[in-house]
Design a protein around this nucleic acid. Sequence first.
DNA 1: ACAAAATATGTTAGCGTTAACAATAAGCTC
DNA 2: GAGCTTATTGTTAACGCTAACATATTTTGT
Lengths: 340, 340
Amino acid sequence: MAGRKPRMPVKGRVTIEDVAAAAGTSMISVSRAFRGSARLSPDLRARIEKAAAALGYVPDRAASALASARSMNVAVLVPSITNMVFVEMLAGIDAVLSEERYQIIMATTNYAPAEEERQLRGLLAFRPDGVLLTGIDHLPGTLNLLKTPALPVVQMMELSGEAGSYSVGFSQDEGGAAIARHFAGRGYGRTGFVAAQLDPRTLARGAGFRRALKEVGLDAPYELLVPDRSSVALGAALLDRVLAERPDIEAVFFCNDDLAQGALFHCQRRGIAVPQQLAIAGFNDLPASAWTVPALSTVATPRYEIGRKSAEMLLDLMCGRTPEAARLDLGFTLHVREST
Amino acid sequence: MAGRKPRMPVKGRVTIEDVAAAAGTSMISVSRAFRGSARLSPDLRARIEKAAAALGYVPDRAASALASARSMNVAVLVPSITNMVFVEMLAGIDAVLSEERYQIIMATTNYAPAEEERQLRGLLAFRPDGVLLTGIDHLPGTLNLLKTPALPVVQMMELSGEAGSYSVGFSQDEGGAAIARHFAGRGYGRTGFVAAQLDPRTLARGAGFRRALKEVGLDAPYELLVPDRSSVALGAALLDRVLAERPDIEAVFFCNDDLAQGALFHCQRRGIAVPQQLAIAGFNDLPASAWTVPALSTVATPRYEIGRKSAEMLLDLMCGRTPEAARLDLGFTLHVREST
DNA sequence: ACAAAATATGTTAGCGTTAACAATAAGCTC
DNA sequence: GAGCTTATTGTTAACGCTAACATATTTTGT
């Protein structure tokens, strides 16, 4: 009776049945012990926990999902994880969801709506209890996949006007406009907009920039848009092209900080004084942007907080609660530093 | 007979049974059709695919895993995804595994062995067919979790000497040594080693640096090691401390490019000429490192290839094949640029 | 032409877990 | 102390899929 050691089953994995046998109880009690909430006598719970630990039992999510119709998975689709912005957003999502014992199942879409749909189809095989999408532009087929059965969805980074849809983000358009007004305030008349990675958010920033320049009575910007992936290297190359076309340009708005940093480095190499000869602004406020020389003026975006709030909103939806707002604007902050 | 439309089931999800009924066949044939390989008449296959598409059927991995004892999941543990190095490694892993229809289930360990064990336990609930770990230092409990049932494991980034263990990476120690020899070749006598994020790989780089300096007859480096997370900002701060302590230092090896970039920016701000007054070297070769001014000398590490090769090795193990080598050294490349 | 092999499809049982219900023991009301 | 509630534990039947075996059907070899 005293030193009874549960014997390791020789083959196959340890199941709830093995634990039940070792603890001298039934499978359902073990199940309840592992899910915490159910009422169990402290004695039985302790016996079960001891037996489970001795056997090295790990619950099987697949079986659990099948039996309970809740997978405790959340599908997350982001364009890329090479981009820090989305990584920080993911960190925010995970901080909230892991607290509630949800597991993130993530896939990248490579900024392509068709790939988003393909990846979503793959993730749906995990029977997620909810879905987080990046952006508000999706293929009809993508939205259709989410309709049967109706899956809670929150869209991140942008704000949706659609009725019945949920979104957490900020106005990309207004972010671009803020840069335009800042340029105007500094007296820069001949401006440029340089963008790569032409996703909807990038284009919205450009549209806002253009709109606000017009509103304050400035000329339309010189624009250079390329479909390539953003990078520091590309930023340098694009600035070179801009200067070749418009040697007299006074201020350039790069659609993100990667490009802007590359442009700063290029100016240093070419001996162009920033901001005296040329002002440069970016978007996102990456960690390094405050430390470049000169420090980069940019729009700081609350992506960690977007991740958190999106996850919280999704949590509400998955639990059948109604979120406080269907559309949550977290705003942005213009950081004026040395480069403008 | 002609226009028979499969009717949308009103409640619950679409199952293999619904598809079988709509296609006028049995469940097992639908199952076979979706797994591709089994022999089915082209006619039947077409009917099934049509029915599945019409119903919007998506297979259920949980049920499949339960029935087949293969989850087609691979668990991947990385220290952090804020660090580009691991993100690129993940990209390599995904490129290989998604090709073979495996899904990555990923978690971050925050560089903490205990957290690694906790996260692994969570991932094991997905019944992965294999596991990819970062590094070769793990808690005994972590290794124990992988023993029953014996799970294929490949360790990434470092090379293991352990018999029966599989690893893909390069010698971190030799990487550090390469910097030391380069410093010696340039005639820098008073050197320093600055490190943050004191994980085993960081420490190995320092050890190699120290060893090689000794081998070429140079003094031991001045060392500054802090446990904080690496960042550009921290690099600047740490260089400041180094210069306060050792104003006459000639060359500093930073344990990674983030810190080194911060140091470069700091030098620019303080008007310190690099490399004339102070030489700076980093580790990893991040994309921006070739574009900073001056461009950063650093050790390029093959992390994308490490991801690919690790995944291929794991694939071998999961299919019962024996990998060509249990220990695959992918080496590294010293990039000498303007900063030294 | 007839056994043997290959191909194409179907039947049955079970993977590990939990929902729903059932049963028993213990406490409480008046 | 009968009748009620509450606390604790157990039983049974799925969940959606696939392995293993079984059964038709066709092809092949000689």
